[in-house]
Design a protein around this nucleic acid. Structure first.
Lengths: 256, 256
DNA sequence: AAGTGGTCTAGACCACTTA
DNA sequence: AAGTGGTCTAGACCACTTA
């Protein structure tokens, strides 16, 4: 459970993971003084540079903050930081202090896979495995924000459908009930207009411009969800920060 | 010019900047073996850990790549990396191997600032300084992709307007002619539909959905450009990668 | 066998903060 | 004066690559 000097995993890396776990489990409160470098050196029996490296990784992730002369502190993650990470709609709304909810429209297996792939070419990432569709409208303080079509491998999707999808976020349930950890996602942002169906769900006029996001979420290297989100563009925008030297994940894509 | 042990700037930081400059100036070719850690230790008269730290920063920026047992190499930046950074349309298209061009629609001072701010509230970042507008259509291989309205403080804008804005990118010209370095930008992505004017410039029907980006670019802490881009959503999408642990700059924004 | 980058130690000195 | 994190040294051992 703790640090093993004979594992072929670098000590600084083992310590980073150990400390991250402790923070996430709530062993330290936000704003608390974190153990000093010296205490960590003694606790793990390693040198100062190894501790520094382990702690630096968590500073980078936004979990800790160092103040020279004062100490290391557990940081309150800013809304910015929370949202730059891979999060679901429910987490995102809660982080902003809004009340998320959802209305289920449909849950069930995808009957005609070939036809569905024609409409949503991105579904190819799943190969020819059977799929399960969860379709819902997500709301903020009772106002519809986005119409979501979320495709999962059949087993995952059908198990999710048994849960409280109107009161809880998909991604929370995935972790809690399926034990999957979504590590990474790729997201494409585009624009479209509301058809009759979308217009009804989102309470806008037909033809209203919508912000369209297609997201593929991965657990390890395996794709586990493809979702299509249609956001009301009058209520939701997407923000990106760009840096001259540091490569960032956002970029335009030419549609061939 | 080189490293100064008596400056209050950390050695690793001085070395990082020195090496970055050398790479950018083309002292090493892509794929070339970069000096080994040992050579750098001797050259700068510092210890291994200081060299490692300096080199690690450039690995992080995507300029170098380390292969244990082999050496450090100058990396060809991938299209992904180039585009995650703050780049203009011309650089972006060139990085993808397309031929960018532009048609100027209008250049001139903003006459009625108060009125313009009412239409584009983002312009408030400039306070009440006089502004200059550059309006153009940007093309890829001759095809219109985006209609751009780019606002600059008067002096910068008027100087840019004297340059070859149809054959070169704004951001290149800014660096070359104005000596400004754009370090950071904040960008908001939304959806809209083509009015008569946009429809004409982009050769689409009125009402076609467009991807709308509003960007504020900064040199140091000073905002120097606010641009409004309307992209043809059938030809251009925006892509973002999200990570579970690492905060990334992309995030949704609720419109109040 | 010699060279590479990756990890790690045990310590030093520094500026800064707190008491 | 004692404690904090930030920087840096001089070296060791490791796995891996190349010859």
């Amino acid at each position: 459970m703790t640090i093993d000097r004979f594992k072929p995993i670098p000590l600084h890396y083992q310590i980073t993971n150990e400390l991250r776990r402790a923070i996430k489990e709530g062993h330290y409160r936000v704003g608390d003084l974190f153990p000093t470098d010296k205490q960590l050196m003694e606790k793990y029996g390693v040198s100062s540079i190894t501790v520094r490296r382990a702690v630096a990784a968590l500073v980078d992730e936004g979990l800790l903050e160092r103040r020279p002369g004062k100490g290391t502190f557990v940081k309150r993650e800013t809304v910015e930081e929370t949202l730059g990470k891979l999060t679901g709609f429910f987490e995102e709304m809660k982080a902003r202090g809004y009340e998320p909810s959802a209305t289920i429209i449909f849950t069930g297996p995808v009957e005609d896979l070939a036809k569905e792939i024609q409409r949503v070419p991105g579904l190819r990432v799943f190969g020819d495995a059977p799929l399960y569709l969860i379709e819902k409208v997500q709301k903020m303080n009772g106002q519809p924000i986005t119409y979501l079509r979320s495709y999962w491998p059949f087993e995952y999707g059908s198990r999710l459908a048994e849960e409280d999808l109107e009161g809880r976020g998909l991604y929370e349930l995935v972790e809690e009930k399926l034990g999957l950890i979504l590590e990474r996602a790729e997201q494409t942002i585009s624009a479209g207009r509301a058809g009759k169906k979308e217009a009804g769900y989102l309470q806008v006029k037909t033809g209203t411009p919508l912000l369209i996001m297609e997201r593929v979420a991965y657990a390890g290297d395996r794709p586990v969800e493809l979702s299509l989100n249609a956001y009301r563009a009058d209520r939701y925008k997407y923000r990106v920060v760009l840096d001259r030297n540091r490569p960032r994940p956002g970029s335009g894509v030419i549609v061939e």
